[in-house]
């Protein structure tokens, strides 16, 4: 009797430790990033407390109100791309800090460690329900997903790779705009990426851009809004100038739902607002519809 209870207790302890370890692990991972601060968090739209671990399992969607949280680039690829088909390309670029700003390199190193990305954009080859494509994802946890020299270069490279392989390209945008720390070079990335889109488009290839929360500034004014098909996630902030800047300029409060994806759909700048759960299926369908049929 005694021995049995002993072993049972032991197993219970082990299980408890294991559980603690797992939750600690995710907790630390989440803690390193600045936005999801803990295991439990309040949903900004319905004010209910939600378990972030469960939330991540639920593709970062709130269980109660369906609010879409920001998604990390790696999770996005895991969610959209078929298992074991993703091959990352274009690693290993570093910026040379053109304005010689103090602390910029250290800042980048910190974000690299926290997000396990080399820049705010990753791309590669992948399949969506068997449909081959090039996929590029911006990560808003990396310095607000801002576009500097390296992000611009990698976006351009992803289009060039798609041209080389004659593949359609799907890009998920999430960015605060051009990266100020790199000054004029960030601005020039807008022209660079736009002309890359043009070259890809001239080859008769498909470019689907998916606008996710938040997409503003220089990214909106370049490759994000140049897609043949522009999709958006529900309630994502999409616009050229940030809401704070507009409020300061015109000195009045902005109406509710302004610059959200539903607003853009109504104004005719987005083809369709799609719920995250339907996204993969819709993308696969769109890619299939754009195969050469003759």
């Amino acid at each position: 009797m005694n021995s049995i209870s002993k072993t049972l207790n032991k197993r219970k302890k082990l299980k408890k430790n294991l559980k603690n370890k797992i939750s600690e692990g995710t907790y630390n991972k989440v803690k390193n990033l600045d936005v999801p601060k803990g295991l439990y968090e309040k949903c900004p739209s319905c004010d209910k407390t939600i378990n972030m671990k469960k939330n991540i399992e639920n593709d970062y969607i709130c269980n109660h109100c369906g609010n879409h949280f920001r998604m990390r680039a790696i999770d996005r690829i895991k969610y959209i791309i078929d298992e074991d088909t993703f091959a990352e390309k274009g690693l290993g670029f570093i910026t040379l800090n053109p304005l010689f700003q103090d602390g910029y390199e250290e800042k980048l190193a910190k974000y690299k460690k926290a997000t396990n990305l080399d820049e705010a954009y990753i791309y590669g080859f992948g399949q969506i329900f068997g449909q081959p494509c090039v996929i590029g994802v911006m990560d808003s946890y990396f310095l607000m997903g801002s576009m500097g020299s390296v992000v611009g270069e990698k976006v351009t490279k992803s289009f060039e790779y798609a041209i080389y392989k004659k593949l359609p390209i799907v890009i998920f945008t999430a960015s605060g705009g051009a990266r100020m720390q790199e000054g004029i070079f960030s601005l020039m990335q807008m022209a660079k990426t736009s002309s890359a889109v043009a070259s890809h488009s001239n080859m008769g290839l498909l470019y689907i851009s998916v606008l996710t929360h938040p997409t503003t500034g220089g990214v909106t004014a370049s490759f994000a809004t140049l897609g043949d098909i522009i999709l958006a996630e529900p309630n994502a902030l999409v616009g050229f100038a940030g809401p704070r800047v507009i409020e300061q300029t015109i000195n009045q409060k902005l109406p509710e739902g302004f610059q959200r994806s539903e607003f853009l759909e109504e104004k005719g700048f987005v083809d369709k607002v799609i719920h995250r759960k339907d996204l993969k299926r819709s993308l696969a369908k769109l890619l299939a519809l754009h195969r050469r049929s003759y």
Binding site: L226, G239, F240, K267
Partner: peptide, 15 residues
Amino acid sequence: PGIGAEERGQGHAIA
């Protein structure tokens, strides 16, 4: 940066 400009797609026009 204004309401009307955003409604008519400032980012899209520049792009």
